[in-house]
Design a protein around this nucleic acid. Structure first.
Lengths: 233, 233
DNA sequence: CAACATTAAATTGTTGACACTTTGAACGAG
DNA sequence: CTCGTTCAAAGTGTCAACAATTTAATGTTG
């Protein structure tokens, strides 16, 4: 064998067919490329990838544990569909995790972190003023993810991202209307201020509240949508 | 579409061979019945259960996603081994989740919940005074799990329990020494008081701190153990 | 005898076949 | 026409065999 010594590098295969399939199927689900009624057909899936069903089934088991699909014995695999109650619960947990991330970050708050947060804040501000949701959305995502990532807790990052991933299953439009963008970014500003001020308690609270308010907005929209549905029925 | 109706009976098979194997292998891992160097042999496992390797592999994929085993392509499956740094991260996330649970519970705080918490508190008090760790431990577990369960957020409960399950991989003795039990139970008392007083903020803080203090104790023990190891080397 | 190449054994990876269950369409009785 | 039964088609569940890779054991050379 070739080099090793210092850092036993592991040129070893880093991926495998089931892992590859898992990633691919996951993106098919999240991109909505697969939701023909929510059912996933093993044969068909295996055929499109040109592999046998074994590795596909293994990938689906992983996706089940990640909360992206549901496995009903003898019935098949279904893309998990979230009802509003579950989404609300997820938002709560996400609020707690995000709050904790901000709290941790506040105890460090290195200059480059602050700078990056301020930059994102400014960009979001511009997008918000322009009511440009398509520009705001990825910045908003980056802002949250950056705080979590830089909190420096890998377990936290994994849990948070897993939750956000599951949340993507809930397609009801994340559309914020009009000045909601500006309100949202004001909350961001408070978060950054708390982190910059090394105020851990405030960082937690403002961040927690920020996600909770997102939940409220979602609930409000869901309620009115529910009423509309009832009327049309 | 997913069910609704009053009770969509589902006499449908609720379990499957891979799910069964998953549960069984999981308990084998957590009970330490399987750790011959951390390696898991598919053939051997399949033979002991009298099944083929297919279902076993599927079960192992699930366990990987749950964070109980590691899958190295072409190398095999290994029982996940946690280093102290990972455990510390997990404690942090657990603190955040547990704090959130207490916070939620404080906003409800129904009489039967308070009664149950007080009962557990008393029992733990007795066990603590008697320095009876074997009696204290399951009560302590029940106390925490009860708070999480009754917080009424299923996603939170699942995440919390998943984390606690992973934490069991870290065998370094959860032995609390001497009066640590009494100190721990004083913290429990503060938590119950906050919940009973419907003080959500205090419930969060006391609960978060309680788990964090557990982390500190762990770290302290780990540090001294590290020194001992160094000396003996 | 230490380090390297070679080869055999063990283990994982993938497949195609077959058994079992569910689904739904055709059929027949009331 | 509705309800229940029967039967074929489709899909999932499991297996055993084979391919590919890793691991170890053996032999070889400087």
């Amino acid at each position: 064998m070739t080099s090793s010594a210092a850092h036993d590098v592991s040129f070893l295969r880093l991926t495998s067919l089931p892992m590859l399939l898992e990633r691919e199927i996951e993106s098919m689900i999240l991109d909505g490329r697969l939701s023909e009624g929510g059912r996933i057909n093993e044969n068909q899936l295996a055929a499109t990838f040109g592999v046998s069903r074994g590795p596909v089934r293994e990938a689906l088991r992983s996706l089940e544990a990640l909360g992206l699909v549901e496995l009903l014995p003898n019935r098949g695999v279904f893309i998990r569909s979230l009802d509003i109650a579950q989404v609300v619960e997820m938002y709560g947990v996400r609020a707690a995790l995000f709050g904790y991330a901000a709290q941790l970050l506040a105890t460090r708050a290195e200059p480059d972190v602050i700078a990056r947060l301020r930059a994102l804040l400014d960009e979001m501000g511009e997008a918000a003023q322009a009511h440009d949701f398509d520009r705001y959305y990825p910045l908003n995502f980056a802002f949250h993810d950056f705080i979590v990532e830089r909190a420096g807790n890998g377990v936290l990052t994994a849990q948070y991202r897993g939750l956000v991933k599951q949340l993507r299953l809930y397609r009801a439009g994340n559309l914020m209307t009009g000045n909601t963008l500006e309100l949202s970014n004001e909350e961001h500003a408070r978060i950054v201020a708390a982190i910059e001020g090394r105020d851990a308690a405030s960082a937690y609270q403002t961040s927690f509240d920020h996600v909770e308010r997102g939940k409220e907005r979602l609930l409000a929209r869901s309620a009115s949508a529910g009423r509309a549905e009832e009327q049309s029925a």
